[in-house]
Simulated assay, not measured.
Amino acid sequence: MSPPFSSPSTLEAAIGGDADAILTLLKTSQPDIRRYARRTCRTTSDVEDAVQETLWIVYRRIGRLQRAGAFSL
């Protein structure tokens, strides 16, 4: 099964500002972001900070995404 954000309609809705679609995108992305942070950060605190900062940046900049492939895994 493909992730919900791989659906063009969900991703387009998120880019368009739909709050439910953005929440779906963030929730679906968080485990992968956390896994990456665990591999690259030294401490648990750094992992948590990196995940929080990344999700915040995605949230703030979702309307500027130009490629649907930005969230393909």
Rank of each mutant, 00 (worst) to 15 (best):
L11I: 12
D49Y: 10
V51T: 10
S29W: 04
R35S: 15
A19T: 14
G69Q: 10
E53P: 03
R39S: 14
A14I: 02
F71M: 05
A19I: 15
P8G: 04
W56N: 09
S7M: 14
A50L: 08
I15F: 09
I22E: 03
G16S: 10
P3A: 09
Y59E: 10
Q30G: 02
F71N: 04
G63V: 03
T40P: 02
T10K: 02
F71K: 06
T24D: 05
K27L: 11
R60E: 01
R39D: 11
Y36G: 13
M1R: 06
I22Q: 03
E48N: 14
R67W: 01
A68Q: 07
Q30A: 13
E12Y: 04
L65I: 14
L65E: 08
A50N: 11
D49C: 08
D32K: 00
T43M: 11
I57L: 13
Q66H: 11
F5L: 10
T28V: 11
D49L: 12
D18M: 00
D18Q: 08
G17H: 08
W56Q: 13
A14P: 09
P4M: 12
L65G: 01
L23W: 01
M1Y: 10
V51R: 14
R35T: 12
I62F: 01
S29C: 08
I22N: 00
E12I: 02
S72M: 05
Q66P: 02
D46L: 14
L73R: 15
T43N: 11
F5Y: 13
R34C: 06
L26K: 14
I62N: 07
S6I: 00
L23D: 15
D49T: 11
Q52F: 07
T24H: 04
C41F: 09
T44G: 15
I62Q: 06
Q66Y: 07
V58G: 04
T28M: 02
E53A: 14
T28C: 06
I62C: 06
D49F: 11
M1G: 11
D49Q: 12
V51E: 03
R34E: 15
S72L: 03
D18Y: 06
M1I: 11
E48H: 09
L23T: 13
A21R: 03
V47M: 12
I22S: 01
L11K: 04
S9C: 02
G16Y: 00
S6A: 02
L73D: 12
G63N: 04
A68D: 01
M1K: 07
L11T: 08
L23Q: 10
A50D: 11
T24Y: 04
A50R: 15
I22H: 01
L23Y: 02
G69W: 02
E53V: 05
E48P: 04
R42F: 05
C41M: 15
L25H: 08
D20F: 01
Q52D: 09
T54F: 08
S6Y: 07
G16F: 00
C41G: 04
W56R: 12
T24C: 06
S9L: 10
S72Q: 13
G17S: 09
L55R: 00
R39I: 12
T10W: 08
A14L: 06
D32P: 00
I62M: 13
R67C: 03
G17D: 10
C41V: 10
D46C: 12
D32N: 04
F71G: 03
E48G: 04
